[in-house]
Amino acid sequence: MTTFQELIRSLTAFWADQGCVVQQPYDVEIGAGTMHPETFLRVLGPEPYRAAYVQPSRRPADGRYGENPNRLEKHHQLQVILKPPPADIQMLYLESLRAIGIDLAAHDVKFEEDNWEWPMGGAVGVGWQVMLDGQEITQFTYFQQSGGLELWPISGEITYGLERIAMGLNDADNVFDLPWNEALSYGEIRRREEFEFSRYYFERADIDRCYRMLADCEAEAARSIEDGLVLAAYDCCLRCSHLFNVLTARGAVSATERVDIIGRVRALLGAVASAYVDSRRELGFPLLEDTP
């Protein structure tokens, strides 16, 4: 048996040993570890960086009221950013699987093409989904673009789907049966949360109010960019993204609105990305090893 928290601990320890800054989950609702500023912003500009952190990731439309054994409105990703990616990055990744107790010789591991994109973030990457015995357990991406900017150096991103890996490790058919620790199961801790949020996202979220909140966050993001407060602006964009996902799950976004909202937030995120690079440049890119 490998508990959920043990899995997190071993993976984090592995990447800490690789020189990663061990970060904490971001404290704004987001849909993926990629949206954490430690990824979205750090991959911009020339400064090298390595980070690892768990990110609870909210996908309102994937909620199933806690009744589906595989689908969750909130799952956990363990995100690793290696900028620039070392040449042996895939080997390091396989090593990390061994570190969490996967006997690779007794499994079927494949790197299958899967090119990642986050249209709202103007982000594009090339990579794979890593399949373990037919299950996608990791998204492996070489970032090429973020916030609409070409990246140099590029970053390697490794995103582990923790629930899926834990299910494989424990031969579990139902995510809610996973042992969170020695005493409590994933279901005992999280099932009610899945139910409540599914009910909220699908049935109760107030459409008009959510649209107003979206408009407010957008306006606040734009104003913060003007004030040169990049990080505050970025938080507002993340809130926009989450509200947009809530409204989508609620079935309240028509196709044209969808295109409009994505376009508007993308423009804001593009402005944030450029402003972030500028702010780092003003500081003289302090993390560059050989600053002239």
Binding site: N68, P69, N70, R71, A105, A106, H107, D108, V109, K110, L132, D133, G134, Q135, M167, G168, D171, D173
Partner: peptide
């Protein structure tokens, strides 16, 4: 992508994934 499935884990893993997909 390997020569054998000595412990039956690979077959079991693929079966579990397919069942989840078919259930969906």
């Amino acid at each position: 992508n390997t020569g054998a499935d000595p412990k039956g884990w690979i077959r079991r893993g693929h079966e579990r994934v397919l069942e989840a997909r078919l259930r969906d």
